[in-house]
Each structure stands twice: as structure tokens, then as C-alpha cells.
Design a protein around this nucleic acid. Structure first.
Lengths: 189, 189
DNA sequence: GTGAACATGTAACAAGTTACATGATTGA
DNA sequence: TCAATCATGTAACTTGTTACATGTTCAC
């Protein structure tokens, strides 16, 4: 999903300025699965206004630059609908944390434990935020998304918390041997 | 995390060609939280070899282009270690699916249900794949990552499955009123 | 005989980020 | 007085993707 669709989506709930769109994208419910910087939002709004998907009215302010309030047009709603009814692409997930854990055998035990503890805290904080945020949601869409967030982040937090004692070295030889009769390293090369 | 670190990480487990690195990134355990195309891998390998982080030996093949097998050097391992001990950035998650659900009030009920059913299936398939993939893992790092995947994807699947009857219109007035005594819409702009 | 897997590489393109420019107001 | 919030906008840069070029072998 591109910036255009994000802006249209936010504007479909009501008029807003570029600045406000950025805030919503980084604080609100959206923040967990979208991203947007001014450098992408402002040009997108300008272009979409040129294309007739948005209208813009300027409100003079003293000191600050004119505030530009954007509204979505019929054409804009149509474009949004097209985007929303297109089969959603696979979710994208990038995690340096998991990459580090995958490579944990190259690191020392202590460091890995710190990373784990750190992540457990972060996940706890995130979960709390989502829960707090969900308390005052009334409409079905946002409630669904919030519930999804609670389910997924909750599961991640549980998992990490239960594995704070993770050991980078393989389980005791006897056990390992029982599970994996003979793990041979490739000889050639 | 950039392509360079990804390549170094994969090569830290053993020599490989660019082609093989791509395969590992898109099939293996890595596939769920990294991405890489030939257009980024090949230039990265060439550059890192120039920089002394890798060495490369060509193996002639008939018909096919020479196979270039890369090995990580001491300098490469050092760079990898630096990357792995740098505090991991926040996980990034992008979801068109959640965006659609967030906007579900603009869509029709039937369509949303289809999207939900579709996603439930996709998540079930992904979960199965992760479980199958995890069966033959023996080292702690990969096992941890696989367990994490099972926990998170499992939670997502459960949540979506339990909400296949999701309704885009707000709950019955009486109930809604009971839950939310009085939700006032902000008057001013 | 057709498509997939093997195998590398480049150039053009897409999309978005970062840093900068500008400048008032407000709260700690 | 220092940082944050409000407010918009651009240019340079980063990073990576897509499409193309090239060519064999193997399985269906």
C-alpha cells in the first residue's frame, strides 16, 4: 500500500492537513502497520489535488505557514475503493530482532539475554499501549484491528517472556542425541 | 537490516553463491522476516568482495555462467558481529489486510467476509509451513525463531478464525449504548 | 516442446527517507 | 533558554525492485 492510499484512507474519515495525517499515521491505530514521512505525504497531497482526488482550502495563520486542509472528493473515494477491493498483498514483516536470534550462536549468552529482556519490555509496553488505545474504540473496523494487535503482540510477548532463559548452546548432548541421531556436517567443499 | 548484513549472516553458516543466498532468503526460516532480490544481492556480494569482507572463487560450469562461491572473511565476521550487537531496530510490519479492515465501514459486508476467510486460509497455510519447517531444526537460534513464528502466526490465525462472522456495522444500539455511555463527536475543527 | 531450475549480471526505475530551510509560540 | 509543537515544502540521497540479457539441462 502506498502513501496515496494511506492519505485517502485517513481523509475518508474527515478533513485533515498534511501535518495531521503524519500524526495519525505515527500515533494512532495506523502506526503499527503503516509508515509515512512529510517528504512523502506533502508531494502526494499536492499531486492528488492536481488530479482531482482531493480539494484543498488554505487557512491563513499568523506566524505559521498557511494551514492547508484537504478534503477527499468523489473521485478520491472511488480510487480508495478500488485500492480497498484489490486483493491485499501479503503482510510484510521485517525483524532485526529475529535475525539476531537466528544468529545467536555467533554471539555471547549474556548479550542475547539482554536483547531478549529488552524485547520483552518493549513488547509489554506496546501491548499496554494497544490496550489503552482500544479502550475507547467503538466502531467495528478499528476494534477488529485493535483486537488483532492485542492477539499478535500478546502472543509475541508471552513467547519471549517464557524464553528469557534461552540458551545459545544446543541442549545437553544426551537429549540432543536422542532427538537427532546423527547430524552430519557436509564433508565436501 | 540491509542486504549486506543478510548476506554476511547467511555466509556465516557456510559458503554459498548469490543464487543460493536468494533461495535461502525466500524459502528458509529467513523468508518470514527478510527480503532480497538478485538485483540487490549480486551487487552487494561484488562490493563486499572488493572491500575484503568476502572472498570469491569461480567454479567453471558448462552451459551455465561460472558459479561464484563466496566465503566470509575475518573482516566480514567482524562487520557481522558489529551489526548483530547493535541494538535491533523496531520490527517493521506492513499490512494491507489490516488497512482494509480498518476501513471496512466503506466496504460491503460480503466483501469483507471474503477477505477474512481468505486471510484465515493463508494464515493456516503459513502456520503449517512454519511447523513443518521447524520439525527438523536442532540448533537453539533457529528453534527460537521458529517457535516465535508459530506463536505469532498461530495467534493471528486464531483471532481471524474466531472473527469470521465480523460485522461491519456497529453492534446493536442497546449493547453499544451500554458499553459506551455517551461517545461525543468533537464539535470544533 | 514447454516451463522450471540453474546462474549471473546491469540499467532503468520506483518509492520513500533525511536533512535542510523557515519561523512563531508555548511550556519546563 | 532549550526543546517541543505547530506547519509546509524541496532536493539530494538511499535502497531496493523490475525487467532485460544470456544460455543449458531436465522433467513432464
Amino acid at each position: 500500500m502506498n502513501i496515496r492510499t494511506l492519505c485517502l484512507g485517513i481523509l475518508s474519515f474527515g478533513d485533515a492537513t498534511g501535518y495531521e495525517i503524519k500524526k495519525m499515521a505515527e500515533d494512532g491505530l495506523f502506526s503499527h502497520f503503516v509508515e509515512a514521512s512529510y517528504g512523502s505525504i506533502y508531494p502526494a497531497l499536492t499531486r492528488m489535488t492536481d488530479e482531482g482526488l482531493l480539494t484543498c482550502r488554505s487557512e491563513a495563520q499568523d506566524g505559521k505557514p498557511d494551514k492547508k486542509v484537504y478534503s477527499i472528493t468523489k473521485a478520491g473515494r472511488d480510487e480508495l475503493t478500488v485500492a480497498l477491493t484489490t486483493r491485499p498483498k501479503k503482510d510484510k514483516f521485517k525483524s532485526e530482532f529475529l535475525f539476531i536470534l537466528l544468529m545467536s550462536e555467533h554471539l555471547d549468552q549474556e548479550h542475547v539475554c539482554e536483547v531478549l529482556a529488552q524485547r520483552a519490555e518493549e513488547l509489554a509496553a506496546e501491548l499496554e499501549m494497544i490496550q489503552a488505545c482500544g479502550a475507547h474504540l467503538t466502531t467495528p473496523g478499528p476494534r477488529f484491528v485493535n483486537g488483532y494487535g492485542q492477539a499478535v503482540v500478546g502472543a509475541a510477548h508471552d513467547y519471549v517472556s517464557k524464553n528469557l532463559d534461552f540458551s545459545i548452546s544446543p541442549a545437553e548432548p544426551s537429549e540432543a542425541a536422542a532427538r537427532t541421531p546423527q547430524v552430519k556436517v557436509e564433508a565436501a567443499e
